[in-house]
Design a protein around this nucleic acid. Structure first.
Lengths: 193, 193
DNA sequence: GTCTATAGCGCGATAGAC
DNA sequence: GTCTATCGCGCTATAGAC
């Protein structure tokens, strides 16, 4: 039997976890398979048994997070497109960040990983879906400005506090989301009175 | 005469500009000196004449931006520590981002560059100074939460809109800053009534 | 399932001709 | 000031023994 790239054996999980730690510390390009192997006391070749390539390892790290975010966004998109949608979209995004804090924190800052085709494509896709949900389809500069504010503010609020309590963050981010959305509505009124 | 690492000859500037473009596209680690040379139609060795190492090239890219930010923060720190200071700190940060949009946009997302000792040290330093200015020295979780919100929201608002007009951004970000600061004050009141 | 050994490549960096 | 040529290294990845 050849190497099962998609399996979740205990050894494979240990490799994946060690890789995430090292990627977060030194970046994707800055981490070699040798370093990952050394940390676990195994050899480079053993890493290759579990993941056919460095990109396979990257995919194993990010795909569960993307899959969850896809599902969460799908739930919001299935709801009627009323005025409550932007807040629910922010809530979905918050849940994704809380459930994948370490992966998302690293991924959002690592250009070396973000620019790999597999990651790049899914990133662009979810960003666009979030954009539509948050700004109700508005496509002008003000909408794009505020989409960045929403996503960056919420991402930073969660991912920059690795030791903060999850439930405390959930409530503070919910308040933050409401405050930001009211800021967006005010900016719209200011622009088109 | 040996290579003048700190000089700003026309050729050196062309190398620096090409490097920034490629670093932004492929990341610091993902860009080789060969690629930089190829883009300019020169050789790798010619690049090494202008910059003694890849890290020298990195330093030449980021140090002017850090120097400007240092100066701007110094101006705010020289003012009395009153209630206007957080807004002025955000204004200084905004000016830095507007004046170094392309460099800052790349740097803030590139783990490979951020983790180089020279960049890492200055980044940590300015982040801490900004933190103190924005939250008036508060050091609890709520203050750190909002420091992230301030910096991430403003960074995203500016750096994610590479084609937006500078003056338009300046006024929108000023409004955003006021709105965020009022959110922080409200959160403090909510926590300690 | 994990190992040793190594292929094959591209990297950063250097030496010295012109 | 820019070139050619090359070194030594560490990387991803493979082949095949155990």
């Amino acid at each position: 039997m050849t190497a099962p790239a998609a399996s979740r054996s205990e050894s494979a999980c240990r490799v994946r976890d060690a890789a995430l730690e090292l990627f977060a510390e030194h970046g994707f390009d800055g981490t070699s398979l040798q370093q990952i192997a050394d940390r676990l006391g195994i050899t480079k070749a053993a890493v290759y048994y579990h993941f056919h390539s460095k990109d396979d390892l990257l995919a194993a790290l990010v795909e569960p997070a993307f899959d969850d975010l896809d599902a969460l966004l799908g739930q919001v998109e299935a709801l009627p497109a009323d005025s409550a949608r932007p807040r629910l979209a922010l809530q979905a995004f918050t849940e994704y960040l809380l459930q994948h804090r370490s992966t998302a924190a690293w991924m959002s800052r690592d250009a070396g990983a973000l620019t790999r085709p597999a990651v790049w494509e899914r990133t662009r896709q979810v960003e666009q879906r979030l954009d539509v949900l948050l700004t109700s389809g508005d496509a002008d500069p003000l909408a794009r400005f505020w989409t960045s504010v929403f996503t960056r503010a919420v991402s930073g609020a969660i991912l920059d506090q690795p030791d903060a309590d999850e439930q405390w963050l959930r409530t503070e981010v919910a308040e933050l989301g409401k405050h930001l959305l009211s800021g967006y509505r005010a900016a719209r009124r200011r622009q088109q009175p």
